[in-house]
Structure formats: C-alpha cells, structure tokens
C-alpha cells in the first residue's frame, strides 16, 4: 500500500475542493482499501465522504431518493424498499456478507470494480490497470468472465448485485462535479463498455461525487431477484437476474429484465423486453427470450456454461414472475 493522505471533510464544498486537488473518495472502503493494499489502486489522498450527510433515504415524487453513503444493510432493511422494491432488497441481501454490507454504501457499490483475478494481480497484464499492457484473462482462467459486451481488450465482469436491481428499476444517479454543479445520469449512461479503453469504466469525471440514487415509482409489482453462485452465500454471481414485471389480463404488460454475471455492466436488452410485452406467458416465449438475449453472446471458453444456465434461469424467473 502506497502511503496516502486522508481527509474527512464535514462539508460538501471541502470535499469538492479536496477532489479538485486529486483526492479520491472513499465511502465504506470495502473495495477501494483492498485494491490499495494490493497497489492495484494507488491514490495519493483519500477523501472520506462518510460525514457529508449523504446517508438519508426519502420519498420523492412517488419514488425514492437514496443517499450515496447509506449502507447496503440499511437500504435493504428500509420498509419502503422491502415493500415497493423487493427486487432491490433481495439483490442487496444476496451480496457479500453481513459485515461487508454494514460498511458498503450505495455509491461505492455502484462503482466497485471488477473481480477479474488478473485485474487483482499486479504481476499479470491488465488493460484496465495499465492501458495497453494486454489482457491476461484472455487465454487464462475465464470461468467468471463476460459473455456479452466484452472486447478483445477486456473481458471483465461488473460484479454488483445491487446495480442489477437498480438497472431493472430504471434508477438514475445524482452527481455533483468538483465545481459543485449537480447533474443526473441514467444508470445505463453511467457505465461504459470496455471497447479499446477498458480503464474508462464510467462516464464520471475525476472528482465527480455521487450524492444519491433516484428510483421512480416501480413499473411493476412482480419483482424477482435470482442469483446463482458457487456457494450458498458470500460469493459473487455466476449469473443473476433482476426482473420487474406487470401483468394485465393474463398478459405481460411490461417487463424490465437486468442481468448480472454476464457483462461488463448490469445488462439490459430492450429487444428481449419488447418480445415479451403484450404476450401470454409460455415456456416457448421464455425460451425465445433467452435465445434473443444471447444471440450475440461470445463467451470465453471457461464461461460457455453461462449460456445454458442463463436460458434456464431466465425461464424460471419469468415463470415465477408471471404466475
């Protein structure tokens, strides 16, 4: 771990100032500090945002506004979340461990970095860590790498469970620039696919502070989160599906489906959703949805199993959500 300075401002303006000077925000630290110990990340200054009063949660315009430093545990336990956004509560509780969730925050969870083992290993090449150095994962162990949205420069996954649920819930992110100017970014616009620049993971500029996540009123009352993993708890997803559906007269009136464990970002495919909309549920329909979802899939050798797995799980999730 490289020596670093640490500041813990009590005002947002001082946080912005510290960020302008090159500081990096730290919230729960459960991801950043691990990466610093391994010198995968080497910030000179940490700006602790835990005292900025960003840990509230409030009802706004029929939706929710979730503070950036609210812990994953508190968010999952909020009665409004449990009642109206169960897909989010379940996704949160399917992630990490109780101890980690007590520290992990909304903003930190969204911005946690990939768990690709080569990214974590500074003795191997990684285009995310050192642009242009190459990707050691390609040709290496690829059991939990991306089957969609990857590039020849990077095949790493986004590991978050929470972000998958947020994606299905059409969340937006409130951000303040280092000059204090606020803006709102729709979740799909927050993440960027790796392409030739896998080190650029989001559309945030240095010093941008996530202040909150906004959820509109839920678009459907049938919500399912299903996660497949290597042990019963405390493992990242091999695959996860967040589904928010509304049924009308036995037909699917609206479907929002987001996937984790498949791509460099929580994945959503409008074509799949369109295919389902206005249709009567059936096995054939759900199987078709899986075909369409994976039409462009290009799994590395170790991750080929994700294709049949995704089809089966998608079918089970849709069956559950439409019953």
């Amino acid at each position: 771990m490289k020596p670093f300075d640490y500041v813990r401002p009590g005002e947002r303006s001082s946080a912005h100032e510290a960020a302008r000077d090159g500081g990096r925000y730290v919230a729960g630290g459960t991801n950043l500090i691990d990466l610093m110990k391994l010198e995968v990340m080497t910030p000179d200054t940490l700006v602790d945002i835990s005292r900025l009063d960003l840990d509230g949660i409030e009802t706004v315009d029929g939706g929710l506004r979730i503070g950036a430093t609210l812990t994953n545990s508190d968010l999952a336990a909020d009665p409004r979340v449990r009642r109206d956004y169960p897909v989010l509560a379940r996704a949160l509780l399917a992630g990490a461990s109780g101890q980690l969730r007590n520290k992990a925050t909304t903003g930190g969870n969204l911005l946690q970095r990939t768990r690709c083992p080569y990214f974590y290993d500074t003795d191997t090449n990684c285009n995310k860590r050192t642009p242009g150095s190459g990707c050691a994962a390609i040709g290496g162990e690829t059991r939990n790498h991306a089957v969609l949205g990857a590039s020849e420069h990077c095949i790493a996954l986004h590991p978050s469970d929470m972000a998958v649920a947020l994606r299905a819930l059409d969340a937006t992110v409130e951000v303040e620039g280092p000059d204090g100017a606020p803006r709102e970014i729709a979740l799909p616009d927050l993440y960027r696919l790796p392409g030739a620049t896998p080190h650029i993971e989001t559309s945030l500029a240095p010093g941008d502070l996530i202040t909150a996540v906004r959820l509109p009123a839920p678009s459907g009352d049938r919500q399912v989160y299903r996660k497949v993993r290597d042990r019963a708890s405390y493992a990242f997803a091999l695959l996860s599906v967040g589904a928010v559906l509304r049924m009308e007269n036995g037909r699917i009136a609206q479907a929002a489906l987001a996937f984790g464990g498949l791509a460099p970002q929580p994945w959503r495919d409008r074509e799949v959703e369109a295919l389902l909309t206005a249709e009567t549920p059936s096995d054939a329909l759900f199987e078709k949805a899986g075909e369409v979802l994976l039409a462009k899939a290009d799994p590395p050798p170790g991750a080929a199993f994700k294709l049949p797995l995704t089809k089966r799980v998608l079918k089970a999730v849709l069956t559950e959500a439409t019953q």
């Binding site: 083992p117 080569y118 042990r231 019963a232 708890s233 990242f236």
Partner: peptide, 13 residues
C-alpha cells in the same frame, strides 16, 4: 489464480 478467501470457496455457514 484464486488465491484469497473471496475466490477460493470454503464452505460458509
């Protein structure tokens, strides 16, 4: 490749 307790999966409770 998986040389830590996040990725080497011991059984948990």
């Amino acid at each position: 490749v998986n040389r830590d307790f996040a990725e080497y999966h011991l059984p948990v409770n």
